[in-house]
Design a protein around this nucleic acid. Structure first.
Lengths: 116, 116
DNA sequence: CTGTATCCTCGCTGATACTG
DNA sequence: CAGTATCAGCGAGGATACAG
């Protein structure tokens, strides 16, 4: 079977789950959907993220080959982040999740209130 | 635009992201893919989860209407967990993620090692 | 503008032991 | 068998201030 090994704690698919699950990566992918963005642009688009955490997220995604970081030697400094093809391909699973969420959120909320 | 509101910190789609992102929910869904399972069955199938955390996960998913908990008045006690239609429908986005992970894991690993 | 540098808290997660 | 109780650690995430 296909997903059998997922139950192995060392399965590498877990790495992807962890990344998708982290609080900001998905939002970064969505924010970069329509092309490159600058640091402050991302920061204001994505509500409530501090510069430290945004930097951490971007660096991690860069390490994983999901996006590129381009520095322009200008004053004031300019840095642009852009999804790689690999990062762009993440939209497929992400859309699957957000679509599901939008389709079924009312059911979840209803179930929660039923328990109240 | 469709995903605009996701950037709102209060957006409810985040709730789903958080649930998908947590360490065990996805594995529970996969473990229940082929029908109802008992507590200990889940515990042994999913490696490395303690009873406390498994209980927490199951209760949370029950509250959200993703699965049902059925107690049989027997000795010894028997409890079966089964996905609801809502929980079953989660397989679509989850498969999208695991498929993506399996397809692109090598690229991620390669990108990581390139940085080393 | 694009980050770093500190400090700190919160809660998720786990280990272990015990109960109906 | 199916959990609950209790304790503990750790690290992601955040607040704030500052630097190149």
């Amino acid at each position: 079977m296909k997903h059998e090994d997922v139950f192995n704690p060392d399965c590498q698919v877990r790495l992807v789950l962890d990344r998708i699950g982290d609080k900001w990566s998905v939002l970064v992918v969505l924010a970069l959907r329509d092309g490159p963005r600058r640091f402050t642009g991302l920061r204001t688009t994505i509500g409530g993220v501090t510069p430290k955490v945004l930097t951490q997220t971007l660096r991690a995604m860069e390490r994983d080959g999901l996006l590129t970081r381009r520095v322009f030697a200008e004053v004031p400094p300019r840095v642009e982040y852009e999804l790689t093809p690999l990062g762009l391909s993440l939209h497929a699973p992400i859309d699957a999740i957000t679509d599901w969420a939008e389709a079924h959120l009312d059911e979840i909320v209803a179930a929660r209130e039923a328990t109240t």
